[in-house]
Amino acid sequence: MSLVALSRKKSPWLLHFETGGCNGCAIEVWACLTPVYDVERFGMVNTGNPKHADVLIVTGCVNARSGRVLRNLYSQMPEPKVVIAVGVCACTGGIFHDSYNLAPGADRAIPVDIYIPNCAARPEAIIDSVLHAVDLLEEKGRSYDARRS
């Protein structure tokens, strides 16, 4: 594996955006950063800035207002980038799916690569999804390089 590919795999910087659900998944994403789960051992850093991020973690269901913010954040992230929808609300809308102001799933707003169902998604599942995202990131990176050259 080339050094570039290895580096892409070893350093996924996260951007977490809660689009508006119940916070349960958001808290579990935060729990991943803390000593018991510690995702920094995989090189993940919670950046809080879309311009620095590689992986966008979306939790919660998307409504008109937060969808705008979500699209904005997504478009600010430089290539290659991966989007993970964490929790059933971000995947399909969950229990709120037929509410009057919600889009059923984050994929109505931005392209989503990985879905994790469950309410709320467990930290283990979130870590696993980011590790899948890392492979995808490497793949997307290769196609991005091919496009650039």
Partner: peptide, 25 residues
């Protein structure tokens, strides 16, 4: 307004026993 989900309106359409799960969320 970023997190509005319309729970109060949803509750009026759901069965009252199921609303418990809605309230939980």
């Amino acid at each position: 307004g970023y997190m509005h989900r319309g729970i109060e309106q949803l509750a009026t359409r759901m069965e009252f026993a199921k609303t418990l799960f809605l309230a939980e969320r």
